[in-house]
Nucleic acid binder design. Sequence first.
RNA 1: UGGGCUGUCGUUCAACUGGCAGGACGGCGGAUUCUGACUCCGCUAAUCUAGGUUCAACUCCUAGCGGCCCAGCCA
Length: 566
Amino acid sequence: MNETPKPETIAGVDFIRAIINEDNKTGKHQGRVHTRFPPEPNGYLHIGHAKSICLNFGVAAEYNGLCNLRFDDTNPLKEEAEYVENIKADVHWLGFDWDGREYYASDYFDRLYELAEELIRMGKAYVDELSADEIRATRGTLTEPGTASPYRDRPAEESLDLFRRMKAGEFADGSMVLRAKINMASPNVLMRDPAIYRIRKAEHHRTGDKWCIYPMYDFTHCISDSIERITHSLCTLEFENNRELYDWVLEALDLYRPQQIEFARLNMSYTLMSKRRLIELVDGGQVRGWDDPRMPTLSGMRRRGYTPESIRDFCARIGVAKADNMVDRSLLDFCLREHLNAAAPRAMAVLNPLKLIIENYPADQVEEFDMPLHPEDEALGTRKVPFSKVLYIEQDDFREVPPNNKYFRLAPGKEVRLRYAYYVTCTGVEKDAAGNITAVRCAYDPATRGGWSDDGRKVKGTLHWVSAAHAVKAEARLYDHLFTVENPGAAAADEGRPFADYINPESLLVSEAYLEPYLAGLPVDAKVQFERLGYFCVDPDSTEKLRVFNRSVGLRDSWAKIEKKE
RNA sequence: UGGGCUGUCGUUCAACUGGCAGGACGGCGGAUUCUGACUCCGCUAAUCUAGGUUCAACUCCUAGCGGCCCAGCCA
């Protein structure tokens, strides 16, 4: 669990505040603010859920209120205990705590059943024996009203008897259903006698085989909110049409009524947010699992190096509103870079090594330099980095023929600084028979120890380096964006192609690339920002091999700029 | 087509009950720098349309237009 998150102010949350403030003024909830985060445990949490988590916990915190964690587990076919555990872990990782208020819709099955019977007795619900197809056929269309089921007006006692026998397991799945009796002609299709209980002879991850009938979302969610005395039930836009039903159920049963408030869900470019499709990716083996670093899940992003702080900051910056949106990934990357830049201890790394031989440095000598772990934060302390006659530098940091006079890295005759070590001047190159450069030779100036000269001499270039003899080899897997189009889900739907077609094949290739970055002997047990190269993060799960995840966090942009200037 | 919701810089969020359309990200340019990073400075660019009310409209009125959601025994 992280430190308690500071209450980042979420942009655009005013339309929710306005409602809460009004409620507080009128004393509707005695000034109480109580929200909930209600995931269905049918998959892992993704960046879209982070928005909801930050909103629900954030709004509650702002008003000194509470936020519950509630699992919406009314469909035994899709839900698993494994998901529950991972969801809890991810919420904690993000930095939020429900303080023991961990609830399950399945906790309310008994109460829900009682209320369903009550609805039947009141004549506001009936057992329908129409098939699913028949119900669909009689529901009408968007422009035409539906027609009543022949069972709609059966006596309450008859429905009650049938409902009890449904519960007792006397009937097969799909043979009958409990429907709320509302209005078959309602312009809101959801109000045309919606099913509120169905028969499902399936094992539930928490209640086992105790039940063979399960309540549906529209009947369950509002009552669960009511039972928990939720004041403001924040949910996404697609539930706007459900609000009328939400209110109807609680009104019919004369129960405490929370206020449902809808907000726009997060859409992010090049990112798939549909849980259904993420499940397909996992099941289809296109990714290694829910926590594959290419996945937009919180666990995948964690492995890729995103920090909870950066995700929270992102959620605060994108804000919340009722208009559909498509947030650019670059904002997420910005948030990560900003946090990493401030917090990550630094290290030097070389991805594409080029041997650098210091001609006038004693062959058997090794020096250790103390380098700050963070250039702007001395409190982080220093690291020791060994220096010797043969080093590795980045291939891109040397050009036999400099492209122009603005190139200030190493080239024949030019002097550069080896970061925190010495100034060196290039004296020549070594080549193999084919003419490929195999090593660069140079001479160092002993008077510049520590990487500084008092004589006013200016060197523009500062290179990163590692001692060849002391370098740590590591396997690096570079992950690219998983999807090739801005909105893979929509693209696939539009063109009617399987969305897996929109996976970037390069992301798979890149992920298998075996690179050999040479890391100086540095603390690599935590996230590390490789200086100058951009922002790499060490996979915190890795134990044996050091994995360097990157690609979306700045490296490419950084190089693009460099290339342009040369 | 019925109903619900929604339209502000490229993106996202602002602009209190009408009063100079602002911030952030992105992009472009510059300064600085022992990471060509970071930082700093500057620039860029928007009220869906048409009428109307008003000294004054993103805001109010009227009429259009666009986008999203709803016809699961999913949530």
